[in-house]
């Protein structure tokens, strides 16, 4: 059983995924509206799991809403809020609902979020979660070795940040994630192409690119303010000075347009870059821009 995302990657076609954040509330219409805007323009849609530690509708539920609309979800799962018992149980539940792609993460620390007074869990880390899903999929057992009646077979992904420190170690960690079970990687937003390519080169030297599909993260900037925020405030982000200058160089009412342009150019270059299997569009609270970028990048229509 393969998912559409997996099929596209297997066939060597350039994949497109996009991120979609569930609402801060129980309104399913919000997720459906976002889904409708993305439908047809992406191969799969990532649903975040209480991203930046802000309490939102659960990823599993939001994924189920997308499924009903005929959109293939990638369920993101962080180890911050659930222990191994809850995580495994939710993986089985997700599978029973038809969810087949999963992205395993450790998650942003809760002190950044809406309820910094919360206790975190971190019973296991993202590496363990990858290994757990792999074990469930391949061996059909839970972490304890108990044989499951139906194995949740998932297409397993992980995140990697080529821009975090220590740089040389990022590739070692990528290797560890692949060994633990990751079959696709969605990266942190790429603005710093030279550094991204350096990371890819190191991965290639270690023979990792044959073992995993790399989907490069891209995020269009809406304003100069956002560019500066991303450069200075977001942990593990590298935004070159030239990008900020470009954003600042246009009048504010045309900044979004410039942001889209930069993004489209980045996508074009990524498409030409060896080892990049697709892009992952993270247009945070700006999901409506995704179709435009996909079209401008000549990635539309998507393969059936």
């Amino acid at each position: 059983m393969t998912t559409r995302l997996e099929q596209i990657l297997l066939s060597g076609q350039f994949a497109v995924t996009a991120e979609c954040g569930p609402p801060r509330g129980a309104n399913a219409e919000v997720i459906k509206k976002k889904g409708a805007a993305l439908k047809g323009y992406t191969d799969a849609v990532n649903v975040t799991d209480n991203q930046t530690a802000i309490v939102r509708m659960s990823s599993v539920a939001a994924c189920a809403h997308l499924l009903q609309m005929g959109i293939e979800p990638v369920m993101q799962m962080v180890t911050r809020d659930r222990n191994r018992i809850a995580l495994q149980s939710d993986i089985m539940g997700a599978y029973s609902l038809g969810i087949r792609n999963i992205l395993c993460l450790s998650g942003d620390h809760q002190t950044f979020g809406s309820q910094p007074d919360a206790r975190n869990v971190y019973d296991i880390d993202s590496m363990h979660l990858l290994n757990t899903v792999k074990k469930m999929s391949d061996e059909g057992t839970d972490m304890s070795g108990y044989k499951l009646n139906v194995a949740p077979e998932m297409f397993i992904g992980a995140a990697e940040n080529p821009f975090a420190d220590p740089f040389e170690y990022r590739v070692i960690r990528l290797a560890k994630k692949i060994a633990a079970g990751a079959r696709f990687i969605q990266t942190q937003c790429v603005y710093d192409l030279p550094r991204f390519k350096e990371w890819l080169k190191m991965a290639e030297e270690r023979g990792l690119l044959e073992k995993v599909y790399i989907l490069a993260g891209v995020t269009p900037m809406k304003s100069t303010r956002m560019a500066k925020y991303m450069a200075n405030k977001v942990a593990g982000m590298s935004v070159p000075e030239a990008v900020i200058k470009r954003m600042a160089g246009v009048p504010e009412d045309r900044a979004a347009e410039e942001g889209i342009k930069i993004c489209t150019e980045t996508v074009a270059e990524l498409r030409e870059t060896k080892g990049v299997a697709g892009i992952h569009l993270m247009a945070i609270e700006w999901e409506s821009v995704v179709p435009e970028i996909v079209e401008k990048s000549k990635l539309y229509p998507r393969p059936a």
């Binding site: 450790s106 942003d108 975190n120």
Partner: peptide
Amino acid sequence: KKLLNGPCGGSKNGKCEV
């Protein structure tokens, strides 16, 4: 984050993202 297989993506210049 009590990571046994770290570092996470937030490690920057030797400092913790938190």
